[in-house]
Design a protein around this nucleic acid. Structure first.
Length: 861
DNA sequence: GCGATCAGTT
DNA sequence: CACAACTGATCGC
């Protein structure tokens, strides 16, 4: 998740470029962003863009632009479809304001803007970060296999090249395609293992300064099915139903489109979509298959992916004939096969009894895929795109370790320009662990109290509500998708192995969904569980997840392993001997797995390759574990206790509770066989890591590297307001600037506007991007640079007329520089334009972020 | 004081 | 992990 928890404040050092985070940067930050990149439009990647005061250029894919500008929150979609809204309220509409064109062709540019700068895929585009020649970067976008419009970015410049993956799924086919991509080939690791690009010194082969990596699922130490495996498996189930069966595909967020595509390919039909999805898909430029597979006619197909909570009459919630398809993300390939087998058998017995299907379509790469991906390039550094704030950057250090073997091997030249990864002290790790444990216990106590209170109430007065209160233990869910499962209100028990079959009693939709969630939980792996308490998972979830470690605690367990800090040699421990395909419980760390798996995983049948056969639970074994009603409590306690011993300094939990925090631990750090990182080596003196704990905890504050860490190329503070290059103009093409071509106002304006323009850039019929208010042009952009670290604020020659007093304010974050009136509101009062604006493309003006950028108006020339 | 906006939480 | 509704704080008027 970008934003909070992302290293370097979401900058891709060594460049002053910020990715997927659009909130304001602290004034004292060493950088102010000169350019923003957006990888895709999931909501956690667009924080800050909703602010009306955001006024800087954002580079993204054409499809991301289109999706963002069409984005509507659910509530708004409902109002729109109910006909309440005269004009649909688009969440990010303020990012693009077209000029207003009057009846006499007069044009008002007041408030016009088009902040989203679309980039073609697989095409280098030049951007200038500052006036100097060395301030240029070349940016190339590649499909990221995550969701529609999602891209990775390669940024190349005088400071070296970095690759930002955004969110991505690096499955084997994806790696293959990268290998064949000429824009990336210079950065692929040399074939000869001991050589690296710098050794050759001729500049043909290059080493990436860093890969900014999607670490959303880095702690998934098991493999997950390829998307293709997932969808073909699903199709094999769908095909078993009678040809009249109606299906609802719960694509509750962007990224599950492969399911729809697979259905269309197999059944040769359309998918019924709500108008929102239909419209978004239809506008996609880079996915013609997806853009055409939808239909608005609910009677035209038996496959539906319409609005989740407002399904069409064909798949109404109370229709017991409908079969639901719910994506989940963390099933292992082995479990998937078992699931398929079991479910197939059930359907064959009676298709009417299986009303809900799971499909393990993961949109992020698990550890093994990430290692394979990184090994492909062997960059100097791996920087995680997402850290868990409660882990206080311990995860950062651990991730470093787990990719250590995937990095550039050349020692002479691999010196990183980036700030060093903060190394946590043992004390910090222990503290974090204790905190998380305490938090969890508090939660549990609270929940217990609540439950009792509820029982008292409902048990006596309202017995009907009892079952509802029963499983409020949905919190701490590992797989978000499970929270989003939908079903109809068909009889509980039908086709649901977890419930007693045959009761035939109809419950509400809610109840059935809860039932379905319980069922689904059995089929997904919770991160860290295979390391910590694997094998007990299924029974534990059946028991309502009591006295179990919390999500964070399990993660800390993994981190401790990765850092090579596990106190006991855990190899023989039952908890690490291969549950659910525990990939790196092998002695060899990442690259071994990576290299073995990379070329051979094409089919998606990973199990034979990635780990020893011994480690693979046989399907039947797994199944029996899963259904076993109880597991030896002692065993689990053992694991729990052992971890705690280390973390609490070799004392038992009870001892520790009595005596308070431990003050020292053993110095001996032995390598756990689980550790992928190898034995802990003595660190150079610059590192604060030791096995003692008296040392200060090294946490770079506040998430920002020390000055010295930055290259001299971009001295701090970054406050130049030099406009970025006129640049992109010629690079951009007409049809890639896609949006809102159906808006009459915009189109007319654009048409008029385009006449005097550089045809290369403006001569297309689509409107967006073409309309450039003078306020955006390099020459006339009034801009004001935000105060930076005590340096006086500067202004360019023009002042921003309105909101200027705002701008003068010394609010620590100047994000409240909001325009106080809608930019286009007073259009009728404005004079006629005598002519069109100068032919200057949208500039990459490095104006301050929350400036009121909607000045101006009328073009005179 | 009220409405709009925004950050943070659930 | 993603979404979106809700909360409280802050600001302009």
């Amino acid at each position: 998740m970008p934003g909070l928890g992302t290293p370097f404040n979401s900058f891709i050092l060594p460049y002053p470029i910020r990715v997927d985070a659009f909130t304001s940067v602290p004034n004292d930050a060493p950088y102010q962003p000169k350019l923003y990149l957006l990888t895709h439009t999931h909501s956690d990647h667009i924080t800050g863009l909703q602010a009306k005061s955001f006024a800087q250029t954002v580079v993204c894919s054409a499809d991301a632009k289109s999706m963002l500008l069409r984005h509507q929150a659910y509530g708004e979609r409902a109002l729109s479809s109910a006909g309440v809204r005269a004009e649909p309220q688009k969440t990010y509409a303020h990012l693009k304001k077209d000029p207003w064109v009057g009846p006499n062709k007069e044009i008002c540019y007041e408030g016009t803007r088009d902040l989203l700068q679309p980039l073609r895929l697989n095409e280098r585009t030049r951007f200038e970060l500052d006036a100097s020649e060395e301030g240029e970067v070349w940016i190339t976008a590649f499909d990221a296999n995550h969701c529609p419009g999602s891209v990775m970015y390669l940024v190349e410049g005088t400071e070296g090249a970095v690759l930002h993956t955004g969110d991505f799924r690096a499955e084997p086919w994806f790696l293959e395609s990268l290998k064949h991509n000429p824009f990336l080939q210079p950065y692929l690791a040399s074939n000869s293992p001991n050589e690296s690009g710098y050794e050759f010194g001729n500049g043909v082969l290059k080493t990436l300064e860093a890969i900014y990596l999607d670490t959303a699922c880095v702690m998934q130490t098991h493999q997950v099915p390829t998307k293709e495996n997932a969808t073909t498996g699903l199709i094999s189930l769908l095909a078993l139903y009678p040809p009249t069966t109606k299906f609802f595909i719960n694509a509750w967020t962007w990224g599950y489109e492969d399911i729809l595509k697979a259905i269309v390919r197999h059944f040769g039909c359309h998918i019924h979509l709500d108008s929102y999805k239909f419209d978004v898909f239809r506008r996609l430029k880079n996915d013609p298959f997806l853009s055409n597979l939808g239909t608005r006619d609910e009677n035209a197909t038996r496959f539906h992916s319409c609005e989740r909570f407002e399904r069409c009459s064909q798949v109404a919630p109370d229709d017991e004939e409908v079969v639901y398809v719910n994506p989940v993300s963390s099933m292992t390939p082995q479990m998937w096969e078992v699931y398929l087998e079991e479910t197939k058998n059930k359907i064959l017995v009676d298709p009417r009894k299986v009303k809900s299907l799971l499909v393990p379509l993961s949109r992020h790469s698990p550890l093994s895929e990430l290692q394979a991906f990184v090994s492909l390039f062997r960059p100097k550094r791996v920087i995680p795109n997402a850290l868990e704030p409660p882990l206080k950057e311990i995860d950062w250090a651990a991730i470093d370790k787990v990719f250590e073997q995937c990095l550039c091997t050349s020692t002479s030249s691999s010196k990183s320009k980036l700030p060093a990864t903060p190394q946590p002290s043992k004390q910090l790790i222990k503290q974090v662990y204790r905190d998380e444990k305490e938090k969890r216990e508090l939660r549990e106590r609270k929940r217990e109290e609540q439950r009792r209170a509820m029982q008292k109430l409902t048990g006596k007065q309202n017995p009907l509500r009892q079952e509802e209160s029963e499983n409020e233990d949905d919190e701490e869910e590992e797989d978000v998708a499970i929270k989003n499962i939908v079903t109809g209100s068909a009889s509980v028990g039908d086709g649901n192995p977890s419930s007693g079959a045959g009761q035939g009693q109809r419950k509400g939709t809610k109840a059935r969904e809860k039932e379905e969630k319980r069922f689904a939980k059995k089929w997904v792996v919770r991160t860290g569980e295979d390391v910590e308490v694997s094998g007990h998972r299924a029974s534990a979830s059946e028991n309502g997840s009591k006295s179990k470690k919390g999500r964070m605690e399990r993660r800390i367990g993994i981190l401790v392993d990765w850092l090579g800090l596990r106190k006991k040699e855990g190899s023989s421990s039952p908890c690490r001997s291969g549950q659910f395909g525990n990939v790196q419980s092998e002695p060899g760390p990442g690259p071994r797995t990576a290299q073995v798996t990379t070329p051979t995983l094409q089919s998606g049948r990973m199990r034979q390759i990635a780990y020893d056969e011994d480690d693979i639970p046989l399907p039947c074994n797994w199944r029996s574990r899963c259904t076993e009603p109880s597991t030896p409590e002692a065993n689990r306690r053992d694991v729990d206790e052992r971890d705690y011993e280390w973390l609490s300094g070799g004392r038992t939990r009870r001892e520790n509770q009595r005596e308070g925090p431990s003050s020292s631990t053993t110095k001996t750090v032995t390598r756990s066989p689980v550790s992928p990182a190898g034995p802990l080596k003595p660190k150079p003196s610059t590192s604060t890591y030791t096995s003692h704990q008296q040392h200060p905890i090294l946490i770079p504050s506040p998430n920002l590297p020390h000055k010295s860490a930055f290259s001299s190329k971009y001295p701090m503070p970054m406050r130049s307001s030099t406009p970025l290059l006129e640049s992109q103009s010629s690079q951009l093409s007409n049809d890639y600037d896609s949006c809102d071509d159906d808006e009459e106002r915009g189109r007319t304006a654009h048409f008029l506007f385009a006449q005097n323009r550089d045809e290369d850039f403006y001569g297309f019929e689509d409107d967006s991007g073409a309309i450039e208010s003078p306020g955006h042009s390099a020459k006339s952009t009034p801009r004001r640079v935000r105060d930076g670290g005590g340096v006086s604020s500067t202004t360019s020659s023009h002042k921003i007329s309105k909101g200027r007093t705002h701008a003068e304010r010394t609010h620590p974050l100047d994000r409240r520089l909001t325009p106080n009136s809608s930019p286009v509101t007073r259009r009728h009062d404005l004079p006629l334009p005598s002519d069109l604006p100068p032919s200057f493309p949208p500039s990459m003006s490095a104006s301050p972020r929350h400036r009121h950028d909607t000045t101006t108006s009328w073009q005179t020339r």
